[in-house]
Design a protein around this nucleic acid. Structure first.
Lengths: 346, 346
DNA sequence: TTTAGCAATCATACATAAAGAGTGCTAAAG
DNA sequence: CTTTAGCACTCTTTATGTATGATTGCTAAA
């Protein structure tokens, strides 16, 4: 049997098992889904279907007499083929609207509000990751002198991202030198993507400036450094909520979760790999030995028009309420885009 | 018996128990400390002392036949009276020197390096909390226009802290207005502490500016907002390390830990309450029902001269290696101050 | 004051048994 | 051919009892 062409009843059985397991966190027995979920068969019939669903890899059996649990494959089929994702209550919709109406001045704030709201409604841990630096356009680059031998550099991009750093020198800097720097870097870099200053550009800058090479080198080096260290701006909300979930009774799961949030690498990879247009669902592989084994991550890109404002996502157990999460995300994503296109048009 | 006047042997017994428990995480029996730790008595003698130490509240008994465990009181006595805190190895000293020698341009970076190093050497979770805003002096306040109706405000303080925000308006702003703003705010606020703009100051500003009240109101409101939201800059390092400790086998402990880091309030209170001059040791109360019950927090203020650069601390189990942690902290604290006074003198 | 000796206490580990849940298979019914 | 009833089988869970070992508290002697 091909995986894709399940007959109608098997689809219903799989769906019933996934939904039941999402609710109870207990393996689902054939007896418990004879009625409801659009099904009305004897447990023996369900058992037969379950055996076949297990054969094609959609279900797992913890042990002989324990009922079935969806496999990663099973979850994927459920998410892709069986999910009905329009189940927000009116209260939830109103709450989201209320929260997103808040007056924000920085896009970062809006992302945080959205992330917090998402966590409140879904009761899962949510994460916001800043946009990739190199996709952004430099709108302003400003040098401000701090004392004689210190300089602050502020770079502002079109998405409202602000990067700043302080550079120290071994020699004095005059105000007129600062003016020159402001002129030079602004005329050269404004409108360009926020990426490292390459060799030709550095050479050009050197050729234009008549004073200390040491200062210029330090500046370029430091700018390249802050441009490179992207995505350090991770915002985490509701980590403790995850610890109330039954899967966190297992120390191993809890530890993997903390590792995931502490190390960040694996998590970031998934956050950055998603498709820009869509809600992306990552379901941890069953067999893998990674920290992600027991978790699912669902992300979407926060965008206004074609500007990438970062990624917002949820980390939860594989037994996640996909329907709910995806519904909420779709709604929030739509709202974010709507409201801000309005504001942009001013 | 008064708590303070333990005879010499009882002191040694208490010390032996604390140190043994720190090493093994197992209740300490009378038999296991008959030799070593400067003791050479029979288990019966030790037992008598242990019974009395328990009476005055320095030891606890998990159950009748389980050996003894230090109480919070016991730890406190140990830390205050019995601790010998000079046990860094040469390798550790060299490693710290090597790490702190790194060239940093922002004080925030230095704090991070110190925090990371502290975590590496002690194997505990470390936390850095930014300095209190109102203790800092405004060194520069800069308005940068972003498009017609957006303005960025950057405030730099004497400790190198940078606060910035973006303000949106309903009307246009001209370059000359921005210049006026820069002049006005800099002459008025530079050298002042980073605190909210009060009524008289606001009134003065209003009286000086001839255009839109709406714009000025928005600016002052927003500046007050970012000044108020202090300590959002918490830097966490090595959370996963804690999960390797035996006490984290208990789900309750693990959950409290995550709550602590996620909610931040309780933790911040302790971080901000410490004495500026000293290493501060907080030991969770035995009976209390708080998230902190099972943990100890050790902090010190990162300062250069009299500038407060924030607080660096460790969160670990009550069974923490106090001697080691305090030694490392003292050393790092000294080094930070030394090196930077040198750099300051340029 | 210190110590040896010993009964008493309690957690832990282990073995065994009983109960319960759920499956897989077979054969009958629809 | 599909569905269902029936039942043996498997495996987990829980309870119970028992043995074991660690450690203490007390007493009496050194």
């Amino acid at each position: 049997m091909k995986k894709k062409d399940l007959d109608e009843r098997k689809k219903k059985v799989l769906q019933a098992i996934v939904e039941e397991y999402i609710n109870t966190a207990e393996p689902v027995s054939s007896g418990s889904i004879t009625k409801g979920h659009g099904l009305d068969y004897s447990s023996a019939t369900i058992r037969n279907d379950m055996a076949q669903l297990e054969n094609i890899g959609f279900l797992d059996k913890p042990h002989t007499s324990a009922g079935r649990v969806p496999s990663a494959e099973g979850y994927r089929y459920y998410v892709n083929e069986l999910l009905k994702d329009d189940n927000l209550t009116l209260e939830e919709i109103k709450y989201i609207q209320y929260k997103l109406k808040v007056k924000v001045n920085e896009i970062e704030d809006l992302t945080k509000v959205a992330t917090t709201t998402l966590s409140e409604i879904t009761h899962y841990t949510t994460v916001a990751v800043g946009p990739k630096a190199d996709k952004q356009i430099i709108e302003e680059i400003k040098f401000v002198s701090l004392g004689q031998r210190m300089l602050m550099v502020v770079i502002v991009t079109d998405t409202g991202l602000v990067k700043e750093t302080i550079i120290k020198f071994d020699e004095d800097i005059t105000e007129s030198q600062v003016d020159t720097l402001n002129n030079l870097f602004n005329t050269r870099l404004r409108g360009k993507p926020l990426s490292k200053i390459d060799k030709p550009m550095a050479d050009y800058i050197f050729s234009e400036v008549h004073y200390s090479i040491g200062i210029m080198k330090a500046i370029i080096e430091q700018i390249n450094r802050i441009v490179e260290e992207e995505n350090n701006n991770i915002f985490l909300e509701g980590a403790k909520k995850s610890f109330d979930l039954p899967e966190f009774k297992s120390m191993k799961v809890a530890k993997n979760f903390v590792n995931l949030l502490d190390t960040k690498d694996e998590m970031l990879e998934i956050f950055n790999s998603g498709d820009a247009e869509d809600i992306n669902v990552f379901i941890g592989d069953d067999d893998e030995n990674s920290n992600l084994k027991d978790f699912s991550i669902i992300t979407f890109k926060h965008t206004i028009g074609d500007k990438d404002l970062g990624t917002i996502g949820i980390i939860g157990p594989k037994r996640m309420d996909y329907a709910k999460v995806i519904s909420v995300m779709k709604y929030i994503s739509k709202k974010l885009n709507e409201d801000n296109n309005k504001k942009e048009g001013m």
